[in-house]
Design a protein around this nucleic acid. Structure first.
Length: 217
DNA sequence: ATCTCGATAGTCT
DNA sequence: GACTATCGAGATC
């Protein structure tokens, strides 16, 4: 079997504001290289968080935990929540702006055996297509992401990086829906969750109002 | 399909 | 001491 190689997306891609990068990341590939093999997920569900956003970790300023959010774009921000889950984010915007995009779900593309090994065998794998990587906590378990990855560059070929999609899809062909973000209590109005339209791998059903849009709005 | 509920520990005030 | 950008199981429609 021939191995296909994927080019990383440049750091410059991430220097735009979080809502823009969040929708541009849809359909891109999250690639995890390990000794055991390679795991690939196609990003299908993201959320944007900005510094003037009360739902964002960066809202109250730089702290020990969120410091990489205030660093250069294109780095990984991984945090631990609910005493048991990791969440994987990509830092966006200009350095110091305190923005990030949460990766809520990916579609399993390669390395399903390793994902199943980590997530645990379950009959859910057959029943629910979003079982393996549908949800920020699940993405981290399936791809082996934990706090040790906090701060890593995602724009160079390494153990974890993001690449352009394999099939060159025209921008117009990508149908994107925006909706309310999940699991937050503050600043619920902005429709800053972005999903691929009618994608069965997204983490949870859409909440509240939503609208179809283009990649660059 | 859509809801509840509780487990759990790091971070900040 | 009071928060969580969650998950999975179980109940109910």
């Amino acid at each position: 079997m021939q191995i296909e190689h994927y080019q990383p997306i440049s750091q410059q891609f991430y220097t735009f504001s979080a809502p823009i990068v969040a929708r541009r990341l849809l359909n891109c590939l999250l690639i995890r290289n390990e000794n055991k093999g390679r795991i690939i997920g196609r990003i299908c569900d993201t959320e944007a968080y900005t510094q003037d956003d009360p739902a964002s970790h960066s809202f109250t300023g730089k702290t020990c935990r969120n410091s990489v959010m205030f660093g250069p774009a294109g780095h990984a921000y991984v945090y631990y929540t609910y005493g048991m889950h990791h969440c994987f984010n990509v830092v966006t915007g200009m350095e110091g702006s305190g923005e990030a995009v949460l990766i809520r779900a990916v579609e399993p593309i390669e390395g399903m055996e390793q994902m199943i090994g980590r997530r645990g065998p379950s009959r859910e794998v057959a029943n629910r297509r979003n079982y393996l990587c549908g949800g920020p906590g699940r993405v981290c378990v399936a791809l082996g992401i934990d706090h040790s990855i906090n701060g890593w560059k995602l724009y160079e070929i390494s153990q974890l990086y993001i690449a352009s999609p394999a099939q060159k899809l025209e921008q117009d062909e990508i149908q994107i829906v925006s909706s309310s973000r999940i699991g937050i209590t503050k600043n619920v109005e902005p429709l800053w969750r972005f999903t691929l339209k009618n994608d069965p791998y997204i983490s949870r059903p859409l909440r509240k109002s939503n609208s179809a849009m283009n990649r660059d709005e």
